[in-house]
Simulated scan of single mutants.
Amino acid sequence: MNRSTDRAASRPSTARASRTARTARTDQLIEPKQERAVLTRARILQAAAEIFAEHGYPRTSLADVAARVNMTKGAVYFHFKDKDDLAIAVVETFYTRWPAALEEVRAKNLDPLSTVIELMDRTEREFFGDVMVQAAARLQSERSLINSDLPLPYQDWIDRLAILLAAAQEQGQVRTDLSAADLARTLISAFFGMQHISSVLHDRKDQAKRWADTKLLLFAGLRPQSA
């Protein structure tokens, strides 16, 4: 009687252990699949960025992207519903890098104006060498050709620079006869215009020189008149 009772009592525990083991095996199967899906999506996004940067939005197709990653169009559609979805993802990826870059520069503990300069220098290097950045910039210039709304351009850059420039004004590094927001808007306008002209006219070959010239003029104009 006791042995029967013991066997009966052990059954729920055995069942729970079996379910736990099955769940663990299922999780082990799911995790690699999820990881592969993330990597595949990243490959597709990188290929799309390369083609958008090279040919622009109108002359890019999902078939081009699929061919670049040696996949079927159906496999690409599994991750992105259409070309607009790809374009949005490229631009969103670009904008997620800006806050992270700012935090990395801030970690150097530079003064506010030096932080602005270092951040802009870093951004120029990324525009020159990072195809995701190049593609996003081109897509933003072609936004009227895209049937979906892209993330709002430039404003986040302006807002974050304005905070730094306001701090620089408080420390006497930057002129105060113009608002920090106006100064930030001027910086961003000049920077994006500079990189766009370099891209269109010279395939960015002169971008570093063009930025050096622009930076010299801009930051000389930012400093207090008595400096």
Rank of each mutant, 00 (worst) to 15 (best):
F78Q: 12
L86D: 02
M71H: 05
A63Y: 07
V105G: 02
E50L: 11
H55K: 14
A101P: 04
G74H: 02
A53M: 08
A87G: 02
A107M: 11
K81E: 10
D82A: 02
P58V: 09
R43K: 09
A100P: 02
V65K: 06
W98V: 14
P58R: 12
I88T: 10
N70Q: 13
K108W: 15
L45N: 09
V90H: 02
Q46A: 15
G56T: 07
L102P: 02
V90K: 03
V91C: 00
A87L: 00
A87V: 08
A100V: 15
G56W: 08
R97T: 15
Y77Q: 09
N70P: 08
P99C: 08
A101E: 13
V90T: 08
L86T: 01
K81W: 03
E92Q: 11
Q46S: 13
A63H: 04
A67M: 08
A53F: 09
D85N: 11
V76I: 12
L62G: 14
N70I: 10
T96V: 14
K81T: 15
F78W: 10
A49N: 05
T60E: 07
F78Y: 13
K73V: 13
P58C: 08
T60Y: 03
Y77P: 04
D82N: 13
E54Y: 03
A49K: 01
E50Q: 14
E92S: 11
A66I: 10
H79D: 01
P99K: 00
K83G: 09
V65I: 14
M71N: 01
F80T: 04
P58H: 03
E50K: 12
V65T: 01
P99N: 07
K81H: 07
